[in-house]
Design a protein around this nucleic acid. Sequence first.
RNA 1: UGGGGCGUAGCCAAGUGGUAAGGCACCGGUCUUUGGAUCCGGCAUUCGUAGGUUCGAAUCCUCCCGCCCCAGCCA
Length: 581
Amino acid sequence: MESKAADGGDKTAGNEAVPSHFIRNIVSEDLKQGKNGGRVHTRFPPEPNGYLHIGHAKSICLNFGLAAEFGGMCNLRFDDTNPSKEDIEYVESIKEDVRWLGFDWGDREFYASDYFAQLYDFAIQLIQSGKAFVCDLNAEQMREYRGTLTEPGKNSPFRDRSIDENLDLFRRMRAGEFPDGSRTLRAKIDMASPNINMRDPVMYRVLRASHHRTGDAWCIYPTYDFAHGQSDSIEGITHSICTLEFEDHRPLYDWFLDQLSIHHPQQIEFARLNITHTVLSKRKLLQLVQQEYVDGWDDPRMPTLAGFRRRGYTPEAIRNFCERIGVAKRNSVVDIAMLEHCLREDLNKRAPRVMAVLRPIKVVLENYPEGQIEELDAVNNPEDPAMGTRKIPFSRVFYIEQDDFREEPPKGFFRLSPGKEVRLRYAYIIKCVGVDKDPVTGAIQELRCTYDPETKSGSSRSGRKVKATIHWVSAAHAVEAEVRLYEHLFTKEDPEDVPERSDWLANINPNSLERLTSCRIEPYLVDAKPGSRYQFERLGYFCVDSEESPPTKLVFNRSVSLRDMWAKKEKTVGDSRRNRS
RNA sequence: UGGGGCGUAGCCAAGUGGUAAGGCACCGGUCUUUGGAUCCGGCAUUCGUAGGUUCGAAUCCUCCCGCCCCAGCCA
């Protein structure tokens, strides 16, 4: 990661100046005042119990971004203190995703479990100073003693055990003498605290679960509250950035560090990301996967980084998105259109253009010589001349998009219809002179057209203009492909917006995936590599699926559609017409 | 009715006593062999509400209203 001047504001994303945010201001101010000896050291601390999603990307960009910006470092630390939910599969995927996003933790790959021995010693220290005790209350009893939001709790009957007894009991907990859940080690703070987290919180529980790293070496595990701050401290973290729900834990975070008199990082909280038309909680994402509403964690409809990657999103687009949405303490829901915009903006500059017909109608050019083939020049990317040109074969029979023909064109439709003309991109102006239909079903079988030889693209012989240019693919040269179109996973902006006695699953969009299996793409793409991204002209950005696209049959995922003024106009015209009647 | 936070446009979000940045969305127009992109213009007389302080308030003070989080031996 490169280091830049530590000057706070005026960071750029694209070409726009992006204002600073409160966390950047805090770090900047700390540096100015010489805190932490001029060091900035952050960490990204996921629990390996699921795949990373775009909400994590916000945190990753924040933590790694701040470190890079101020010449500091950012650790990757797995917060693996609850073996019953965690798995090595998740740590692998997390590493892959952070790397894919473009960040590098160097040799600083840490695990809270690396510190189990040290944490145990810290616990002993607290017992010795009379600040922790072993409690025999079971979970239910502990709840009763805890009190409620409005009533203080009561001291545990075991709170006043002697230091020696506590030491002995804690060692025996660790030695495996007591069953799961029978005893806990608790901090001795204040059962009457208005902050429930300070009511003698649990530091250790007895739990016989095999840990993905430490195996069966331990049968007691530290809780988040006891492990997190001390892990931060051990690693020399300066700014411990987490989400809003931990605000109430900060006094406890500070308490442990103060009692232990060890390096004291500053915890800073920000609002987690929410996005319209999707869910962003591990629990719900897990449910979508397990109940097979989607195809797995990397289903292109999933808001996971693995899903976005397979969908064709670029790390740059996601990073830019994270920069643009800002960092604040206000709970908010970002419009998914913002994310889509970031992808289009990026791909517009770098994706080669290509022609593909998703829902083909056959067209025969009656006045074009049979057997003749022309090689037409096509620009690979009008935004970037350096990407060069390619040849596209043109012949008498080709396919166009069903949407580009209307037998009875509505007002404002200026594509092909009987007697009307359009330009074929990079080729000629054609006119529709006939429509062949199945005599039984009435379905359109093919269009009869004629072309004007004077109108070839690039030639100056004709100054003729037509209102529309459509894409096409020569029938004889077309490569057949499958294209998967995706829509939002949920029909409502807020998936939780449901009628009484229904839940978020009721808002799953039944049409979030559409598979088109007889698409025709230009031959230029026969050898397209998995993961490569293209713009299908006039349709959107697509990438070759990295899982199911063997050489024999190409499978494309639509990453995002192009903005479509006509579709929008037609929809609003349709809506107002419907409203009038 | 306890504690901790947060209220600036349809959605994000700057702003920290000197007269409301920027982005997304949306609406016009320009240009165009992608109804794409680009470019240009529009989009908060007002910052949850009501008072107060001040020459001057989104910024300071007070009341009120609304929303979020916390009663796991999850993180």
